[in-house]
Simulated assay, not measured.
Amino acid sequence: MDDEFRQRLEQRLEQLENRVALLERNQDLIAAGQRRSSLRSLWRRPPMWTFEQYPPRLLNLSAFPPAPAIPANAPRITMVTPSYNHAQYLDATIESIVSQNYPKLTYHVQDGASIDGTLDLLKSRGEGISWTSEPDKGQSNAINLGFAGADCEIMAYLNSDDMLLPGALAYVADYFMSHPNVDVVYGHRVFVDREGLEVGRAVLPPHDGKALQYADYIPQETMFWRKRVWDRIGPIDESFHYAMDWDFILRAQAAECKFVRLPRFLACFRIHDAQKTASTYALGVREMGILRRRVLGFDPTQMQIRRAIAPYLARQLAYHYAYKLRLLRY
């Protein structure tokens, strides 16, 4: 068996594995939807992991709270967008960041030599952003390349199909300035479809470090951290291609970094057919297993995972309905 044939065979087997994993997940969702008890269905698929919660509607940006004033001594923020063949969504991602008008922002798009018109889009942006388009070794590598030499106090990355909400940078900077002991922050998220229409929202309870050891519930697109975290625990682990953000989060938690869930919607997570979350689901299962074994010291069963995160899911359900009933406002 020659190397080329072996490589094609391995690729085909991986594709089949992904397809089987996705079919198994879909069967679970169908089974959940057929249950008579709506409470049990919600328990199996909590609101924070239910993307399409209502029919698409216009995303009303003006309904979100105004940004706080930005002082002269505001911290420097560096943001990176890893990109590959996402020209369809990338412009909205870029606009959501540059329209923040944050005066001490360094923003860089690290593109992996896209062939779908991304290069023309980046050129059209002029000198408003910095960017590089060159082959890379995947998303994790692109993020690290984008952050190389970063001179800042706060860091974050936003994927090329997600969007920041208005005032997010000013709010995050203000919070970090008034809470010097906090290392990592994140907030609530909005789900949007491929057209940018709102289809759901996830309102999260306060941070729970124990639950985080069993499941990654932190919305990556809303997460910001101090550069001292990066300096302490190191960059994104490039051996991970799906769960790299959870790995980074768990390493930060192990280094006793202080996490806070902010009481604000900070970003939009876009749902579409080609997103990495769905296309590499089987790889994700393997990587999440690696992380659980590393942190917990054993391979938990699905029942053990559900029991461990049950208190957090119960609180999330309470926050979800309190927000829907307008008992909570953000």
Rank of each mutant, 00 (worst) to 15 (best):
K137D: 11
I77P: 01
R315H: 11
R228M: 07
Y157C: 07
D208C: 10
Y107L: 09
G209R: 06
G128Q: 12
N101P: 00
G167M: 07
Q100W: 03
S37C: 13
V199M: 09
I70A: 15
V203E: 02
I305R: 07
K210W: 11
P71C: 15
T132H: 07
A87N: 10
T277G: 05
H188R: 08
F176W: 08
R329K: 11
L105I: 06
L119E: 09
S38G: 03
D216Q: 11
A72W: 04
R226P: 01
V285Q: 10
L325C: 05
D161R: 00
I154C: 10
P103C: 12
L325S: 06
L121T: 00
L39M: 12
A67P: 10
L59C: 06
A63Y: 10
D193N: 15
D237S: 08
L169D: 04
R226S: 02
R306D: 14
L164I: 06
A156E: 04
E238Y: 06
Q275A: 09
H108N: 04
L169T: 05
Y242N: 05
P166I: 14
F176S: 01
G128E: 12
R12Y: 09
M303V: 05
A74T: 08
A63F: 09
L296P: 01
M177Y: 03
P311K: 09
I94H: 00
F224P: 00
W246A: 05
A243V: 05
Q302C: 05
D116L: 12
G209D: 12
E95A: 15
A72R: 10
I249F: 11
A72H: 08
R45Y: 09
Q100N: 10
K324L: 11
I236V: 15
F176Q: 00
F176K: 02
L296E: 06
T106I: 09
H188F: 13
P47N: 15
S133R: 02
P263Q: 07
D28E: 14
S37N: 13
I249T: 14
Y319S: 03
S130K: 02
H86M: 12
A148Q: 14
Q15G: 14
L42P: 00
Q275I: 10
N144K: 05
K324V: 01
G112N: 15
Q11E: 15
N73G: 09
I154D: 01
L296V: 06
S96G: 08
L58M: 07
G234R: 04
A211I: 02
L58T: 13
I115Q: 12
Y84S: 02
G117Q: 11
F259V: 03
K276F: 12
C152G: 10
R286G: 02
